[in-house]
Amino acid sequence: MTGFDYAKMAGSAARLLTRFNQGMVTISRIVQGEPDPTTPWVPGEPTITTETLQATVKRVEQKFIDGTLIVGTEDQITFAVPSFEPSLSDEFTVDGKVRVLKDLRPLPGAGLPVAYIAFVAA
């Protein structure tokens, strides 16, 4: 869309999510290190990157429930864009409890994301 400033919208989303922030929500990325060539059967040390998110957590909205991947007993985390692009292999923690990530969606669905929604098992 010509003339629409996605970076400005991302800033607005971050400010709102900071203002209405709920609990402690973190995202962690675990990257397995390369093994030593002399002992390739021993995995290398993993690198873990963790970031605290500006986020809100609530029960999943009815419109997202499909009965297969997303069910009514799960939560949705709406969060500002972190320093790295989130992926389905990342780990979410809410108030100290690791949550199983079921789905991850950028907002909007195409173009530069201004926020994300993660669906996690409760």
Rank of each mutant, 00 (worst) to 15 (best):
M1S: 00
D5L: 02
Y6S: 13
A7K: 09
A10L: 00
G11S: 14
A13Y: 13
R15F: 07
R15C: 02
R15G: 08
L17P: 11
R19M: 08
F20L: 13
F20H: 12
F20Y: 14
N21M: 02
Q22M: 13
M24I: 10
V25K: 07
S28V: 07
S28I: 06
R29F: 00
D36G: 01
T39Y: 13
W41G: 11
V42Q: 13
E45W: 02
E45F: 04
E45M: 10
T47V: 07
I48H: 07
I48R: 15
T49M: 09
E51L: 09
T52G: 07
Q54M: 08
V57E: 03
V57C: 03
V57I: 06
K58T: 14
K58Y: 02
V60Y: 02
E61F: 07
E61I: 01
K63T: 12
F64I: 00
F64L: 07
I65F: 02
D66M: 03
T68Y: 10
L69A: 14
L69V: 14
I70C: 06
G72V: 01
T73S: 11
D75L: 13
F79E: 10
A80L: 10
V81G: 03
E91G: 00
E91Q: 14
F92P: 06
F92N: 07
F92R: 03
V94G: 03
V94R: 05
K97I: 14
V98P: 11
R99P: 10
R99M: 15
V100F: 14
L101N: 08
K102R: 15
D103P: 01
L104F: 06
G109K: 12
G111R: 10
P113G: 00
A115P: 06
Y116I: 01
Y116A: 05
A118N: 06
V120T: 00
A122K: 15
